[in-house]
Design a protein around this nucleic acid. Structure first.
Length: 295
DNA sequence: AACACTCTCAACCGCAACTGA
DNA sequence: CTCAGTTGCGGTTGAGAGTGT
């Protein structure tokens, strides 16, 4: 699958993994642990590149991975996190235990993005794609799928651009982020707090008015706070709309970004104090969570 | 049954960030 | 500080499964 192999990978296996390869990789990692991906294939006896091994392990073989059956709670959290964070799949995945960034990305692209766009276009709008089990296909026949020629790729890009103008979902520049579960115990809280101190890149561009429409409820599993639920009916639209406005004013200078980050965090803390939505016993955990978002 | 078409998701790529010498 | 090697991320692709005609 995917693209043509690059020259350095000639001679290596590509495409779907066989059960034998899976077994080799799993056995090796169980015995020696993760890491050193570059040299891992050789040591594990696999004819794969290290990148491929890492991907297979991270997205499929890891024992703690949940597959399929995205719950409504997860569904909702993905949408809300995405409205706040954009396409930072690894960060979103970090708040969904057992889910991988790849799975969330795929789920978003195939299910949620359509739903969110439809919501933003109003209740009368019909999604362009229909569920598979839709039987009324006669009147909704699509053109035959063509190979991605340059022209139709450009055409699609134009359509996408146009659509993007309508929907105005702010997609921040991707950055590398660390997705740390926030533990309730003190040791982990210290880690989260100290980690936040060094971060100054790529703030979450968000304004007070965005925060005003939200209330927060921590999602706790096994003593770890994995995320928060945001209450309110119209939140997604309002958040997207105002974030989009902010997007128009983005200044790329580091100072502006840093100030925006600081402002957001201050406002976030203030909101939590003012709103009293969350009990005091959870305040510390939520603080850590907010800080960890900027790690 | 055969074909046409859509949808899903595993796997790929390029590139940015990180790390250590 | 620089540079090379490694790791991790988000975007993209296309095979295969599913569904309709």
């Amino acid at each position: 699958m995917g693209r043509a192999p690059c020259c350095e990978k000639v001679g290596l296996h590509r495409g779907p993994w066989t059960p034998k390869e899976d077994a080799l990789l799993t056995k090796y990692i169980q015995a020696h642990g993760e890491g050193l991906w570059k040299s891992l294939p050789k040591r594990a006896g696999l004819l794969r590149c290290g990148k491929s091994c890492r991907l297979r392990w991270m997205n499929y073989l890891r024992p703690d991975i949940k597959r399929g059956n995205i719950t409504p709670e997860e569904d909702d959290l993905i949408i809300r996190m995405h409205s706040l964070l954009g396409n930072r799949w690894s960060l979103i995945a970090g708040r969904l235990p057992g889910r991988t960034d790849n799975e969330i990305k795929n789920y978003w692209n195939t299910h949620l993005s359509k739903r969110v766009k439809a919501q933003q276009l109003g209740p009368d709008h019909q999604p362009t794609s229909k569920p598979r089990n839709n039987t009324n296909k006669k009147n909704n026949k699509k053109k035959k799928k063509k190979p991605a020629t340059k022209n139709n790729v450009e055409g699609e890009a134009e359509k996408a651009e146009e659509q993007e103008k309508k929907t105005h979902i702010y997609l921040p520049k991707p950055i590398r982020v660390r997705a740390l579960p926030i533990s309730i115990n003190e040791e982990d809280s210290k880690i989260s707090s100290s980690a936040s101190g060094s971060s100054s890149q790529d703030p979450l561009i968000l304004q007070k008015e965005d925060m005003d429409v939200m209330s927060y409820e921590p999602w706790v599993e096994n003593d770890d706070v994995f995320g928060f639920f945001v209450e309110g009916d119209q939140n997604i639209d309002r958040v997207n709309a105002s974030v989009s406005e902010e997007n128009n004013n983005i200044n790329n200078s580091d100072d502006m970004e840093y100030e925006s980050l600081e402002r957001l965090y201050e406002e976030y803390l203030q909101l939590l104090k003012d709103d009293n939505v969350v009990g005091d016993e959870n305040q510390g955990e939520l603080d850590s969570f907010a800080q960890s978002l900027f790690v």
